[in-house]
Design a binder for these strands. Structure first.
Lengths: 155, 155
DNA sequence: ACGACTCGGTTCGATATGCGAACCTGGTGG
DNA sequence: CCACCAGGTTCGCATATCGAACCGAGTCGT
């Protein structure tokens, strides 16, 4: 990990925990690249534009965190490539969410369009229980009694 | 913005664009705090644990980026508070995705449970067109002809 | 009307992090 | 034998980030 967020003050939660692992500047770009099929160091290097030393550090950190798996595909010349683990694949919704937000709110082009069954994916976040879309303000925070000044989720 | 990601090499896309705005260490924690009802500087300060100077910088950047809106609620003593804009609210799915990932893959407790209609939200990412869950490997990247070594989405 | 306190910052010097460029190791192809 | 590639590591510099201290405007208690 680049930083000891867990030793910092501030509200701890799974969001902070997740950001501890992938909140760094390159981590999610690396995951993007790997998910797009760039498995070798040099491919990821090109795709992200990260400096080499940063990249090795982040790759190692992501392997340690269980997001990537390092597979040797040649023992000598010692060569390895990187693949998403289950945890890494579980990050794809995060990427998707970011991509959707970027599409909507920053002027930039998506790297690729994700399709399945012949149509472009237009995804939304839906509650498994009732099928209702999430993030539209129908949520309520269940009071946990701590931290003054926090009410229910606004808007 | 803290960094000029757009002047960097590497594949440009909406993910990179989004990370440009909220890829910083504090940005999403700030959005989390504001979405939980912390609107004043000192509340956000406590909730995130960010250093004061970082916090002012990030708040200004997020206001500039259109994620937060700064509202003066008292002209003298000049006091302001921060609220999510539409763009800011559109970030909630990103937070939700991160939270779900953190819940599953890092040992930490969620800050609050999000409920609606009396049950805990268990959300998944679903394609609007066909209703099929996204992120399970059924996606295909539509070839864009660039960047060697990139095939379809693996797994 | 005086001192203590709050809010929202800014300033400061020390440290951590990130950076590009050069170098290294181990192997291949000509 | 030489050039070249992949995958790093090392180096020195430049910037970002840090905590702590300070500040100015306003308010509250006495």
């Amino acid at each position: 990990m680049t930083t000891r967020l867990d030793e910092l003050p501030g509200r701890r939660c799974s969001i902070a925990g997740a950001l501890d692992v992938v909140g760094d500047r390159w981590a999610l770009l690396i995951v993007r690249e790997v998910s797009l099929g760039a498995h070798r160091f040099s491919e990821i290097l090109r795709g992200t534009g990260a400096p080499r030393e940063r990249l090795t550090a982040r790759l190692n950190a992501l392997v340690d965190a269980g997001v990537l798996e390092r597979r040797g595909y040649s023992s000598n010349p010692p060569r390895a490539d990187y693949h998403l683990t289950k945890a890494g694949r579980d990050l794809l919704p995060v990427l998707q969410a970011l991509m959707q937000w970027g599409d909507r709110h920053v002027a930039d082009t998506p790297p690729v369009e994700l399709h399945h069954h012949g149509h472009r994916i237009a995804a939304s976040w839906v509650c498994d229980v009732c099928g209702e879309p999430v993030g539209r303000g129908t949520e309520r925070r269940v009071p946990d009694g701590s931290e003054p000044g926090h009410g229910p989720v606004p808007r």
